[in-house]
Design a protein around this nucleic acid. Sequence first.
DNA 1: GCGAACTATGCAACTTGTTGCATAATAGAG
DNA 2: CTCTATTATGCAACAAGTTGCATAGTTCGC
Lengths: 173, 173
Amino acid sequence: MSLRYAILTSLANQPASGWDLARHFGRSIGFFWQASHQQIYRELRRLDDDGLVRTEEATGQRGPRRKVYHLTPEGREALLNWLQTPAAESVVRDELLVKVFGGWQLEPPQLRALLDQARTDHTDRLAQYRELDRELAQSTSRKARFARLTLQRGIFEEEAWLKWLDQAKAEIG
Amino acid sequence: MSLRYAILTSLANQPASGWDLARHFGRSIGFFWQASHQQIYRELRRLDDDGLVRTEEATGQRGPRRKVYHLTPEGREALLNWLQTPAAESVVRDELLVKVFGGWQLEPPQLRALLDQARTDHTDRLAQYRELDRELAQSTSRKARFARLTLQRGIFEEEAWLKWLDQAKAEIG
DNA sequence: GCGAACTATGCAACTTGTTGCATAATAGAG
DNA sequence: CTCTATTATGCAACAAGTTGCATAGTTCGC
């Protein structure tokens, strides 16, 4: 059910179309709750059915017609209720670690290739987080402070990955 | 498709029944690839259909009949092929971070409750990882070395969480 | 011998997430 | 004027994951 609330959270920040949300899920909120545009459009329809959002045809834009969604009072209330309930422990599903767990069956060069690839991925992500953090640092709004707090978590996460990858590489020689 | 290979990885360590695997997915390999017993039984049937595992009725045990699965040569080959392909970047879906992202709508005490809950969860997990690491430290086998390497990742992960949670709590006052 | 706890396997229904494709309006390059 | 890229919404089919329940043998205490 969390996709529903991730969307409501994003719409509480500002009203948006499905397209906008899909882009948003590729950048900010999407760093810790990923969703494809198909998932988003489907969920938006359900949210509309349930009366938690309403839509208006956007006027005076270029490009095809777009539907801009915004929270209804019921939507805002549902979001606030959800925000106050304890968060479920996150489910980890990490392919690399399964491979390392089975790594006793591989030769060192094959292992190194796995770790090097991961190192590139995590270095890129870290750079992306830091870049976005610099942008957000411009703003002093309350919203931006909380966005930066979640970004900081992403930064710690990637730093921890790099630390482990270096140790793992040292250990397998 | 990774559940399939997580199961094969576990069976490469040692043959096991669905029940054994379900327990295993609650402890070691399950720390980074979670699966319920229903998922496991369903996937085992498919693996059998595809000829990657075979089963024998276990003899001379207590409890109801159990089917013990082991890799076929095809299964071992499929696993080795998979191990050598680059790992997909893991998908993050973390409820707590969505809530913190929307945290500008909450009062400090509500935020603190969220973070405190998470702190308890992560402290517990860290203790669990460390405990299991001490157990594994007894063994010097190649398999155990790789298992410990993945555990080390879990330990770094939880340490990073605690570091962030402390910083976040300090920041929201 | 009875009931509770534990071991063990599995079905059915549902929700969530993925993949591939279809459609259409507009802007800009050539 | 046509072709391509971009914006924008959506369907259909499928795969993966969750929830709730059913079944049954074994062990152990009473």
